[in-house]
Amino acid sequence: MQDSNTNSGQGLRTADGADPSVLVFGRQVYAVLAKDLLLEVRTKDALTAMLVFSLLALVTFNFALDLRPEVMSAVGPGVLWVALVFGSTLGLARTFAAERDHGTLEGLLMAPLDRSALYLAKLLANLIIISAAATVSVPAFAVLFDVAVDIPAVLGTLLLGAVGVAAVGTLFSAMASHTRAREVMLPILLFPILVPILIGVVQATGLALGSPTARDMPWLSLLVAFDGIYVAVGALVFDFVLQE
């Protein structure tokens, strides 16, 4: 951590000797983020996988749970979020899989790059891809099940949930990409840790849809608090995952 900090500071220090560390950090995040998003725009691997999987999950739930309009206010939020979270794991698994397959992980690790900047960039890339997939699947959910969804409110809740999912998912996908049977490990690591996020988003969406079983709690504020903890812990321990 210390080493990479000083390296990056020296590598990108400005000519007048000032140390705009915040600026350098921002530029590092931007560089990795732009690379990942460009890759995603060209291949559309993660986005397609997540989107098709989420829609397919919604259709499967329809048969499995016999989702009639009258039960949707009660089970709708759960159906939507399970579809989205399960779909997200497909994209999250690709965070480091692509770097590993192309042998570019070593390059990233040797670059004069702060590890927290790398973490934040990967997190933001995942967040953007998850949100992009959800902007399609949430309206699709509303149309398919004829639920009167306040789409901006649900997407706002989604963004808060997605921050937590991306924070934990980015950390664990870095670990899972080094294990045997890595497709198996990511969801097994991810789902138990994400229980608070899932409860928060399902309850918040339930309140928005007028679900009879939703508990009246400030779920959105709680989600913000959970996100803060997950991002902070993730940024702190990410360095240990990548020490090779």
Partner: peptide
């Protein structure tokens, strides 16, 4: 590597215990 990864999970997991506890309790 197993030691390093599981140490990270050992820390993240334990920090998550109270968060899970309270979120489920509010539930």
């Amino acid at each position: 590597r197993a030691a390093r990864f599981s140490a990270v999970l050992g820390i993240v997991g334990f920090i998550d215990v109270p968060i899970i506890h309270f979120s489920v309790e509010w539930w």
